[in-house]
Simulated scan of single mutants.
Amino acid sequence: MKPEATAAISAQRGWFKSSYSSGEGGECVEVAVTAHAVLVRDSKDPARPALAVGRDGWARFVQHVGRC
């Protein structure tokens, strides 16, 4: 997905952080779910382009992390 397309989609989505994230800053990512992808961005620099990951790939990633 091109950065311009990601930015357009990003503006329309609600971003959220992990429930494990504190409100004190630090290193955190935010995600937004679209019809075809999960967008991931750095919460400290939300103006930068987001990474678009396929929904199936994201589901496998979350399953793997949950087992760790």
Rank of each mutant, 00 (worst) to 15 (best):
G14K: 13
S21H: 10
H36I: 04
F16M: 12
C28L: 06
R13E: 14
V29W: 06
E30L: 12
A11Y: 02
S18I: 05
T34D: 13
H36M: 05
V29E: 05
F16Q: 09
S19I: 08
G25P: 09
H36P: 01
H36G: 15
I9A: 15
S21W: 04
G23W: 02
Q12T: 13
G26M: 06
G25W: 09
E30Q: 14
V33D: 09
K17G: 00
V38M: 12
L39C: 06
A32V: 11
G23V: 11
A11R: 15
V40E: 03
S22K: 05
S19P: 10
T34L: 08
S19T: 15
A32F: 01
S10P: 00
A11H: 11
R13I: 08
V40M: 10
G14R: 15
S22V: 08
S19Y: 02
V38N: 03
V31S: 05
A32R: 03
A11D: 12
Q12P: 02
F16D: 02
E24N: 12
W15H: 07
L39N: 08
A11L: 13
V40T: 05
A37Q: 10
F16R: 13
G23D: 02
V40D: 03
W15Y: 09
S19M: 01
V38T: 11
S22L: 10
S21K: 08
S19Q: 01
G25N: 08
G26S: 09
S21I: 08
S18V: 06
K17T: 13
S18W: 01
G23T: 05
A32M: 11
V33N: 08
A35K: 10
L39G: 04
T34P: 07
S19L: 04
V38Y: 11
A32D: 07
V38G: 03
R13D: 01
A32H: 03
Y20K: 10
I9H: 02
H36E: 14
W15F: 07
V40R: 04
S19V: 12
A37G: 02
V31I: 15
L39K: 03
V31P: 05
V38S: 02
G25K: 02
S21R: 09
Q12I: 01
I9N: 01
G26T: 04
W15E: 11
V33I: 14
V33P: 03
G26A: 03
A32Y: 01
E27P: 07
A37T: 09
G25L: 08
E24C: 05
K17N: 08
H36C: 04
I9T: 05
A35E: 14
A37S: 14
S18D: 04
K17P: 01
V33S: 09
V29I: 15
